[in-house]
Nucleic acid binder design. Structure first.
Lengths: 228, 228
DNA sequence: TCTCAGAATTAGTCAACACTAAAATCTGGA
DNA sequence: TCCAGATTTTAGTGTTGACTAATTCTGAGA
């Protein structure tokens, strides 16, 4: 029985590494050392050392110079952290007056401190939500998660109506900017005009026309309004 | 500017030491090294090392071989942790269905992770309570706290009515035992008979007579029913 | 006053995790 | 195929905070 299976004596650092590597490795890809280092704001050397330790604990698969992937156990831990994070965000927004732009940092610390009991009580109090305030899906307690196919608004064609499903951003200023313009998960938008050379995009949202920059549009993840 | 004043980069360990030393040093007393070690379940040598570090950070006053006391800054930190702990306990019991016997461990972890913002939101949601589910007073945000004079039920005379003000215990089984018998903060009790040689104590509580052991009675902190 | 048991401290390790600097390895063009 | 630059790993350090073992101090009783 190794440390990962016994209880959960995982450190904060380990939990953060696993969560980050999960994010960086969709569909069986590998995460590079410096990619992880950049995401966690650490030196590549530190990451290299931690990767070795996590491999020994069977939380990562790692071939030197070839990048790292989560093992099943590592993925289980990562998804548990993501469930915690998103449920905590949902709870704080729903019941304690947090706004979606300030809730991330709080959840980032709490996710390492809450018990399973507390997480499930919060989930129950909210009626077991399936997505968080940013539209991100909340993994189920058994670790399963359905990820809807989404496309950044910046890459969508004009003329058709789409709905914003997720907002892939943590930057508080950007999130406030979006909220002020009504660019929230669940909202339907139509692209009216797109200027060339990565220029501004004109959209219609609730009968109102707006112009947004491509940098902003990149974070608005959409699906065709009819789908789901 | 030292670490204690800048932001609050205090570690979990440091916060736990300060909280424990606060508890062990009422009225200007000093806490001995092994006393602290026992309270934190650490070796005396470890505590000795930490005491030295905390003295250098001006969180403790320490004369070698003479015990340690909190500085004003150390006491400030300790009271902040106690406020957090007791507000978290109150919140979890009031809104998330925790019982007073299970809430301690959860609060013990969360108190190191919550922001001031979250603590104050919880306080506001509860209407700024002044005591927690065990009857312990909650320090105000400015660090002030009024400690009522209380006496263990085991040391009270017979015949007079007292009210239970605080329950000085963390042990979940003991707390459940007390709750089942209605021995809760705010309840009025009268001692009917006390058997000698540290024997059982007969009390009346809400018209019902009960017999409790002296070990249990020691944790019931009372004041004369009329006071306050 | 002396002695000695108990309390406290110091000395020396260890593990987790971070860092910089240096060495090793991989990879994409010439 | 070979080399240069990028990526990754190793080597060596530092800090925090725990440990055991050895040493030193204190205070109470003879």
């Amino acid at each position: 029985m190794n440390a990962a299976q016994a209880g959960d004596s995982l450190t904060r650092s380990v939990e953060d590494y696993l969560k980050t590597i999960y994010r960086l490795t969709p569909e069986g890809r590998s995460a590079g050392t410096s990619e992880i280092a950049q995401a966690l704001d650490l030196s590549p050397a530190s990451v290299s050392g931690m990767i070795k330790r996590l491999s020994e604990q069977r939380l990562l698969d790692h071939a030197p110079y070839r990048g790292a992937q989560l093992t099943d156990e590592g993925r289980r831990v990562a998804l548990r952290m993501i469930r915690r994070h998103r449920l905590i965000e949902s709870y704080l927004v729903a019941t304690l007056g947090y706004s979606w732009d300030t809730v991330h940092d709080e959840a980032e610390r709490l996710e390492h401190a809450v018990s399973d009991t507390l997480v499930e009580r919060m989930a129950a109090a909210l009626g077991h939500p399936t997505s968080d305030p940013h539209g991100d899906p909340i993994p189920a307690a058994d670790g399963s998660m359905v990820e809807e196919d989404v496309v950044p608004l910046s890459e969508l064609p004009s003329g058709i109506e789409f709905s914003i499903r997720r907002v892939g951003a943590e930057n508080p200023e950007l999130l406030r900017h979006l909220a002020e313009r009504g660019l929230l998960p669940g909202v339907a938008v139509t692209i009216l005009e797109r200027q060339p050379f990565n220029g501004p995009i004109t959209i219609r949202l609730a009968e109102v026309e707006q112009v947004i920059g491509p940098e902003v549009a990149r974070h608005l993840l959409c699906a065709t309004a009819g789908s789901e």
